[in-house]
Design a protein around this nucleic acid. Structure first.
Lengths: 151, 151
DNA sequence: ACGAAAGTGTCAAAAGGTGTCAAAAGGGGC
DNA sequence: GCCCCTTTTGACACCTTTTGACACTTTCGT
């Protein structure tokens, strides 16, 4: 099973291409023998799935009954998705809307790539720092549960 | 089958012509070898269908028994529809009523074009931000379902 | 019929995206 | 620490797409 892990700081070039860490490309190659990703929007930035994983997700969504939940998923997640592949240097082109969504506009050239099981999260460093701080704060409110896990 | 996807930020010119993303025009060309769209109003803005897709929809609506449901569809969706084609630069003219409906009046020159399977949604950026935020909020209330889909 | 407003067609400039190369930076083994 | 190989980044040329501009046509009200 595919399992991306690790956190990396990489950069986006002036034309909006994000260079994907070699570790992730290797994992993709290892499991799927492939170099395609589907990139879409996410609550806290941009997220990339291997194509086969994405197809499974969409298949499940399409089986949902028509209604608000389904529409919401389409609007936020399914519709913005774009399939893309790496160039020779291991970069993918991110559309303007994604860059904006991930906080990668203007002179912000650095982003964070985080492997989370079968998906890869991408977001601006600023945005990452914020999300991380919020997560940490929530955890701090709950020291017992954390302890119980052995952390 | 036709499948528009991706989200793009484009602009409307001073005369009300909306430039349609090349990706969508390519998809239309690929599937239908055609450059006609039917544009009509929609709950959250303006929506465009390839002509053959639209014809199918109308055919189904016409087979409905006369009554409120049918009348409602006509009033909201069928009647406002206009067939239009791209100019050499890939733009379509939107009537004043559509622009207004999609929140594209005054100095608002930028809009969002979203591919949703066989249709293309167009709406002002303001309007889009709002719809998206609402959808996201509803999804956040429901983390389990999202997880179950593999997202 | 005339003028104003809206819509069309077209051009050309600007912006954006792609492919590729080569330099710089980073990491691992010795 | 140093060298070598891999990865990442910056740069550039080229091509496509988008946008702004302007002239011309149509429509409509008076």
């Amino acid at each position: 099973m595919v399992n991306f892990q690790g956190k990396f700081y990489n950069a986006i070039d002036a034309k909006g291409r994000a260079s994907i860490p070699a570790k992730f490309r290797d994992e993709l190659e290892r499991v799927f023998g492939d170099n395609h990703l589907v990139v879409t929007e996410d609550k806290s930035g941009v997220v990339a799935y291997p194509l086969p994983v994405w197809k499974e997700i969409v298949a499940k969504i399409e089986q949902l009954p028509p209604g608000q939940f389904r529409d919401d998923l389409y609007l936020t997640t399914v519709s913005p998705a774009i399939e893309c592949s790496f160039d020779k240097q291991g970069r993918v082109q991110l559309s303007q809307s994604m860059r904006e969504h991930a906080g990668l506009v203007g002179e912000e050239r650095e982003f964070v790539a985080i492997g989370v099981a079968k998906k890869i999260l991408l977001m601006g460093r600023e945005q990452h720092a914020q999300s991380r701080a919020q997560a940490q704060a929530r955890l701090d409110d709950n020291p017992q549960s954390r302890f119980d896990l052995g952390l």
